[in-house]
Design a protein around this nucleic acid. Structure first.
Lengths: 338, 338
DNA sequence: CTGAAAGCGCTTACAG
DNA sequence: CTGAAAGCGCTTACAG
């Protein structure tokens, strides 16, 4: 099957390639009659423009790049969902890369997307990302860029986030309101801003409510997953016997914690209240169901794409674009673990 | 910042574009000395070939398309993970589209990927896909194609699957082995092959073990999710009081079922045993933990990409390629719900 | 209203 | 060993 080109149509109709091209794009300086003939012939031959040629001419690919720490992840996959749905509606396709929380891989992936000449990049940083020169290179090349969720405050670009500190404050306050006096925190790694902010929100809530902060109640979960939650819970049980509340960095940690407590016959929430973060599907399915903070993944994806599109449009019109930060609301969801 | 092109390098060095191009690609007919000079200059200027031009010339995009029913889905996101990891290693990027189990959307997405001129397409069909002319069009255009998990037997292409019938047979037999005599099946929709096969495996297991098949014990879960599982469970409780085992089409249905039973004080597995399918993360986290069948998502993604790559390579060499079907092994995982 | 021509940036068959 | 030339398929400024 031979590919149909403008040349083909032009020859069939005995007119020039230029006119065919203009007719198909509804240029005003082509007669209605010619337009009709061209369009009919194009439809008959089922003409589809060669995107490779169009890309080369227009210097646009109508393709966006997305770098995300993990794909098998309720929250991030919800973000993907929000992004690709919106993008498709507006004629953009999305290349998805997974950094696997790995800084080196993330750097390579940024290079890959740049050399692919995507029209814009969306990124949520890996937990091990220690510096941001690779991100700044995106800015230098003037490629539209939006960061979401796991951002760096050092990069001057649009950001779609939640207020992690405030959300963590609310979560911790919820434990305090439920009567907890000695509250541990299973936090994420040291680098990511959101893990820092959640820790700070926790600490502030304690201080504001007359509870002394005790650093021995802080446990670090490097991979922020179920296994880490189990380990932290086991360690906590060895170290302390007076903890009556735990605020975890994310739901999976809380699920691991509850699993250990269930196995050991420790009653949740009677003996210890547990608070998750993110509202994964699993949090409503376990027993006891998990109180948590709702983190709007789908909406975050949607807003991320929309912001990127604004920047792309501004760039095309060569009009100025000032990066904006959008903070999405969160709220505590009370279930049976608190 | 001006883009660096071959022309730029050629001018700087006072040689032709042709020679620069050949030097960078290590053509044997360029002197070692010239190659060295060209490579040095290219490195200095941080030259990156313009992919748009390369695509146009080589008629290759080094980009693949993936259409998947749902992204926020443990199994499918694992498949995505397997695909994009392998693809990236081999220099391919992947555009991901979500059909949302919608036939019409799936058709449009196939068109989109075709017009994007991806080098190959990987697809898992939507549950509502009623006919496959859109898939056959991919074949007609000679675009390499691999189907996985939710396939159509009518399409002549490579497939990466599990033996759904056998897996369902094993799952049902497991319930029988655990002493169940009256076993219901919460099945998926009527169209998808895997939902049909799982139903047939269930039926066959009953027959082989002297249990009469009773169509009133079959409930259809259209969206195959938690809510559907809850509804089916509630309906079952109204219709029957003698069921002692349930085999569900997928884990989420089982999770919804267990939730209803927990709320009503029906003991699992003492009164009813429940068997899931797919081994989602959630199945190990709930109480009681869910017995299920392991469905290797990551491996399926990996094999899907590998098969597609073989076909792409064969096409490039214009050598014949015979579609193959790979069936991945599954096994029953016993936990506390049976 | 129509079309010749230049050009996007690369690759490669061919001549010398 | 080097390079002029054609060409991938499109877009668009310009001339008529």
């Amino acid at each position: 099957m031979k590919e149909v080109t403008l040349k083909q149509i032009a020859e069939n109709l005995g007119i020039s390639i230029t006119t065919v091209s203009k007719a198909l794009k509804d240029y005003p300086d082509v007669s209605a009659k010619t337009k009709a003939r061209v369009k009919e012939e194009a439809a008959n031959l089922n003409y589809k423009p060669n995107v490779f040629a169009v890309n080369l001419r227009t210097k646009e690919s109508k393709t966006l790049g997305l770098i995300i720490p993990e794909v098998v992840h309720h929250f991030f996959s919800s973000v993907i969902n929000g992004i690709i749905e919106q993008a498709e509606k507006k004629g953009y396709l999305v290349i998805i890369l997974q950094s696997n929380e790995n800084f080196e891989l993330e750097k390579k992936q940024v290079d890959l997307l740049i050399s692919k000449r995507v029209d814009g990049i969306m990124i949520s940083l890996a937990s091990t990302t220690a510096e941001i020169s690779h991100i700044n290179r995106i800015k230098e090349l003037e490629i539209p860029l939006v960061m979401f969720d796991k951002i760096s405050k050092l990069v001057d670009c649009s950001k779609i986030i939640i207020n992690d500190r405030e959300a963590a404050y609310k979560a911790t306050k919820h434990l305090i309101d439920r009567g907890c006096k000695r509250i541990a925190h299973f936090r994420g790694p040291l680098l990511p801003q959101n893990s820092i902010d959640r820790f700070l929100g926790y600490k502030k809530a304690l201080e504001d409510h007359g509870i002394t902060y005790d650093s021995s109640l802080i446990y670090i979960c490097e991979r922020v997953n179920y296994e880490d939650g189990r380990k932290a819970a086991q360690q906590l049980l060895e170290d302390h016997d007076d903890v009556d509340g735990i605020f975890t960095n994310t739901d999976l940690i809380a699920v691991g914690t509850i699993a250990v407590f269930n196995e050991r016959g420790i009653k949740v929430p009677e003996e210890v209240s547990i608070m998750g973060f993110s509202n994964w599907f699993v949090s409503q399915a376990i027993t006891p169901s998990l109180s948590t903070v709702d983190q709007p993944g789908y909406e975050m994806g949607k807003q991320t794409f929309k912001m990127l599109r604004k920047e792309i449009k501004a760039k095309k019109k060569k009009s100025a674009f000032t990066p904006k930060t959008v903070t999405l609301p969160t709220h505590v969801i009370q279930r049976n673990s608190t």
